[in-house]
Design a protein around this nucleic acid. Structure first.
Length: 202
DNA sequence: TGCTAGGTAGTTATGGGCGA
DNA sequence: TCGCCCATAACTACCTAGCA
């Protein structure tokens, strides 16, 4: 949808309710000036969170999709993830662990892929590693990591013949300002679920 | 309802300091 | 050297007020 179309959609839905811009502004918690800006098609400087509030007030939903170079964006995102996976494998292997990337599974209706499965033969320890270039949702990440940790010993035994006595888990994040901020904001949840810091793990 | 000016609060990038 | 924290400057989104 183009910017002008988005503005027109907001206006149409607003008028359908017989609301003035003032009414929509109050319902969505933004200023009337912003409603006017959006309806005139100048959406580029408006935050997505504001557009979502307005859509919610109109009982509509906002779907944001980023496109670039056909399927090139997916490939680029994969490249960043692959680079992080590669770096993680290097750290793992230099510490005497074996590592297998992208172990897919489908069990009990749960399906997905373990980013890296680490194995330490001497201690029969299995390490479930989750790599994130961007930490968007801590809850979703921890939920998925729990699922993978729960299934890891079964998957490792079936697919790799690794019979573990201990299963642990690690979350690797790209070192970005945004990730650091998210970690600070969700510190209590993260430190409760993953108590060991980078230095301790190393 | 559209538009603008001026002001403000929040966000982000960057760099430096400190301890392990 | 690395990880972490913090201060700061620059930038941006959004507001109010006011006029057409």
């Amino acid at each position: 949808m183009r910017d002008a179309q988005l503005g027109a959609a907001v206006r149409t839905l607003r008028r359908r309710r017989r609301w003035r811009q003032e009414d929509l502004a109050r319902a969505s918690g933004v200023s009337r000036a912003l409603i006017s800006t959006i309806e005139s098609g100048q959406v580029t400087e408006v935050r997505i969170s504001r557009l979502r509030s307005i859509a919610r007030a109109l009982e509509a939903s906002l779907v944001v999709e980023m496109r670039w170079g056909g399927g090139a964006l997916d490939r680029l995102l994969d490249e960043r993830h692959a680079a992080l996976t590669s770096a993680t494998l290097s750290v793992l292997e230099s510490s005497g662990w074996a590592g297998r990337p992208e172990i897919s599974y489908s069990r009990y209706g749960e399906r997905g892929s373990i980013d890296i499965l680490g194995w330490h033969p001497a201690t029969r320890t299995l390490l479930v590693i989750e790599n994130k270039t961007e930490l968007t949702s801590v809850e979703a990440t921890l939920r998925k990591l729990d699922e993978k940790t729960r299934l890891a010993s079964l998957i490792a035994a079936e697919q790799l013949g690794w019979r573990a006595e201990v299963v642990s888990r690690v979350l690797f994040l790209s070192d970005t300002t945004t990730n650091r901020r998210h970690v600070r904001q969700q510190e209590r949840v993260l430190s409760s679920a993953l108590p060991a810091s980078s230095a301790m793990i190393r």
